[in-house]
Amino acid sequence: MAPGAAIIERRFIATARARIHIAAAGAGRPLLLLHQTPRSWDEFREVLPRLGTRYRAIAMDTVGFGDSDALPFAENSIEAWSACAFDLLDALDLREVAVLGHHTGAAIAIEMAASRPERIAAMVLSASPYVDAERRMQKAGKPVVDEATRTADGSHLLSLWRMRQPDYPDGDIDLLERFVIDALKAGRLAAEGHHVVNRYVMEQRLPLVACPTRIIAPTADPHAFPVARKVAGAIAGASLVEIAGGMVPFPNQMPEELASAALAFLERHYPP
Rank of each mutant, 00 (worst) to 15 (best):
P3D: 15
G4K: 14
G4L: 15
I13E: 03
A14R: 15
T15V: 11
A18I: 09
I20L: 15
I20N: 01
I20E: 07
I22F: 04
A24F: 04
A25K: 06
G28Q: 05
G28P: 09
L32E: 04
L32W: 07
L34D: 05
H35P: 02
P38S: 08
R45T: 09
V47I: 06
T53I: 09
R56Q: 11
F65W: 04
F65G: 01
F65Y: 10
D67Y: 09
S68K: 00
E75H: 13
I78D: 00
E79I: 09
A83H: 06
A85N: 00
D90M: 02
L92V: 08
D93R: 13
E96P: 10
G101I: 04
H102N: 14
H103P: 05
E111K: 06
A114V: 00
S115T: 11
R116N: 09
I120V: 14
I120D: 01
V124N: 00
S126N: 13
A127T: 06
A133T: 12
G141C: 04
G141D: 07
V144G: 02
A148Q: 01
T149A: 12
R150C: 07
T151Q: 11
A152S: 11
D153K: 04
L157K: 06
S159M: 13
R162N: 14
R164C: 03
Q165A: 14
Q165H: 07
P166Y: 02
P166W: 04
Y168K: 03
P169I: 08
P169K: 07
P169S: 12
G171N: 09
L175P: 10
L176K: 12
V180W: 01
D182F: 01
D182N: 11
A183H: 04
L184T: 12
A186C: 01
G193K: 01
H195E: 15
M202I: 11
L208A: 13
P212H: 01
R214V: 00
H223W: 11
A224C: 10
F225P: 05
A228M: 04
V231Q: 06
A234D: 11
A236F: 13
G237F: 05
S239D: 15
M247V: 07
M247I: 07
P249D: 02
F250L: 08
L258R: 01
A262C: 08
L263W: 09
L263P: 06
A264W: 09
A264Y: 10
E267I: 11
H269D: 13
Y270K: 09
